[in-house]
């Protein structure tokens, strides 16, 4: 726990604003899907989406030199 009384996990979290017009529907969905809070529900959806997509992570498995080589090959084959 931190000095503020929040857990380390909570103190590292960011607040997200949800318009009140959406809140009713979100609370209904949260209960229907078995979550205890809107935060838990939003967190779960975010995790699902993040696990599905990756933005610009090519550099995790391709070096800059390889990237240039691939671009050249794609150009020479007419793909780019």
């Amino acid at each position: 726990m931190s000095l503020s009384g929040k857990s380390d996990k909570e103190s590292k979290a960011s607040a997200v604003s949800i318009p009140k017009t959406l809140l009713g529907g979100a609370e209904h969905l949260m209960k229907e899907k078995g979550f205890d809070s809107i935060s838990e529900y939003v967190l779960s959806r975010l995790r699902e989406d993040i696990s599905r997509y990756e933005a610009d992570q090519l550099t995790e498995y391709i070096t800059p030199v390889e990237l240039e080589y691939i671009k050249q090959r794609l150009k020479s084959l007419g793909y780019l």
């Binding site: 610009d56 390889e66 990237l67 691939i70 671009k71 794609l74 780019l80």
Partner: peptide, 9 residues
């Protein structure tokens, strides 16, 4: 790896 670069480009 190549298709991933292609889609991004």
């Amino acid at each position: 790896a190549e298709t991933r670069v292609l889609f991004k480009e």
